[in-house]
Design a protein around this nucleic acid. Structure first.
Lengths: 253, 253
DNA sequence: ACGAAGGTTGCAGAAATTGCAACACAGCAG
DNA sequence: CTGCTGTGTTGCAATTTCTGCAACCTTCGT
């Protein structure tokens, strides 16, 4: 909608790949060097871009600060965190908290497994939306037409033989998840990693986040992991209660 | 330098304070509503801004992802991390890694204390630059005129009675730190928290980062913490060696 | 010392952005 | 039910702003 801003912002993901010099930025943007320079200058003034000693540009410090603040504004996270920690203390496995936003599901909090074999994941990184248990819960709560729209647009990569293969299967899975109120991912993303998840709901009953417990087969079997389902659901409900119970700053029905 | 981009980027810190609606954004930017709308749209398309269900805008998810990627590109962090973990395993205290950038010092990595009483800090958040041990190390390495320039511009808040009171004292402290090659913060930020730190140097000998071990008085006395100095320095040197390429990279822990 | 590579600036033309005014839509009061 | 107020949204013409160019400057390597 705004070309200049659009170009400027396109620089950010570009730099996220690694530092680049003026020429490279200009090339990849398809603009003249002087234009790229001025955009970079503006980004620099706002601290989003940093010029390192070899004169190349990379992402700047303010980005961290902004991301941090963005996080703190998600009050689900604040509320949920102690609960997640407690679950981790109980079972020792990796605990995740995720939200849906703009066709993506992302982890916004994580408590690391206390077992030596850990699954890999990163806060802030988009989740494998077609297979992750938390993603199923978050998408299952969307109104039906939206669910369909999202499902149609997705790719369905076959991470493993048990990955969700296509939109049809995905929608059926969502329907099931929606009815039962919890979800699993049994080796759908990584062959040997299983996962159980439960939804966190706001005052209006809408799902605002989802939490999950994940563990590799070498630590516990899928069946053993499923025995944690009551704990996970209880915790999710507790968080829901707190989240919808008190309203810290802004109040709306 | 670029008005449009400048305006657009000004929206980000504004939203960091909390969600805002179109009118508020337009007002605070001093532009017409339609202009603000278009800027927000562009930000939205890049995922930097999210429109929540009540139609207000807040910072978006991509910001997390960008910040994460920015971090991973700091290769000091990659290299240092296993070392930090090892130090934490040895002594149990909070271990930090920090860099200097654009008049700020910020933590880029952290390993949490294994003691129940922990100090508060956040990755990405600017450090109390006048008192933190890591900040002293990073600033002490700047060329003299730059050090002076920075010191003059700083505020010197008295967090505690032992905080650095003014630019003069600060510069003297930096000189000392520079000579001895390590730094401490003994209750200068929080009355009961002490800290020892050592510099990490690149191939050219310049300080590129600093690491520290922090612990509250209730866990160990300042004297006891100081006995960890050799460990900290040894670790920092090991990281320096790997970072500058002198040490062939060995497998991560 | 020279040439090359990359970065920087001034300027005129071109294109994008702006603010306006009108429109849509919701909630609310009468 | 109807008109009102407070939003957010779109089309348009004027004008501001941005762009690309070409020349200039600096640094580095040979």
């Amino acid at each position: 909608m705004s070309q200049t801003v659009d170009r400027a912002l396109s620089i950010l993901p570009l730099l996220a790949e690694g530092p680049a010099d003026l020429g490279q930025v200009a090339d990849r943007l398809g603009v003249h060097k002087s234009t790229a320079l001025r955009l970079l200058r503006t980004l620099h003034e706002h601290g989003l871009v940093y010029r390192q000693s070899d004169q190349r540009y990379r992402l700047g410090a303010r980005l961290f600060a902004l991301a941090q603040e963005a996080m703190e504004n998600l009050d689900v996270r604040e509320i949920a965190h102690p609960h997640l920690v407690r679950v981790n203390e109980d079972c020792g496995h990796t605990v995740h908290l995720a939200v849906y936003e703009e066709n993506e599901v992302l982890y916004i909090d994580k408590v690391e497994s206390r077992y030596p074999v850990r699954m890999y994941s990163r806060i802030g990184k988009p989740v494998a939306i077609t297979v992750a248990a938390v993603a199923k819960l978050l998408l299952a709560d969307l109104p039906e037409h939206e669910r369909r729209a999202v499902a149609e647009k997705l790719d369905f990569p076959m991470y493993t033989s048990r990955s969700t293969p296509n939109a049809g299967a995905f929608l059926r899975e969502l329907e099931k998840v929606r009815e039962q109120g919890w979800a699993t991912d049994l080796g759908g993303h990584e062959e040997s990693v299983n996962c159980v998840a439960a939804p966190i709901r706001g005052a209006d009953g809408r799902v605002v986040a989802a939490m999950s417990v994940s563990a590799p087969n070498v630590v516990v079997t899928a069946d053993e992991l499923l025995t944690l389902l009551p704990l996970v659901r209880r915790t999710a409900d507790a968080i829901s209660g707190e989240y919808s119970g008190r309203t810290p700053l802004k109040g709306t029905a």
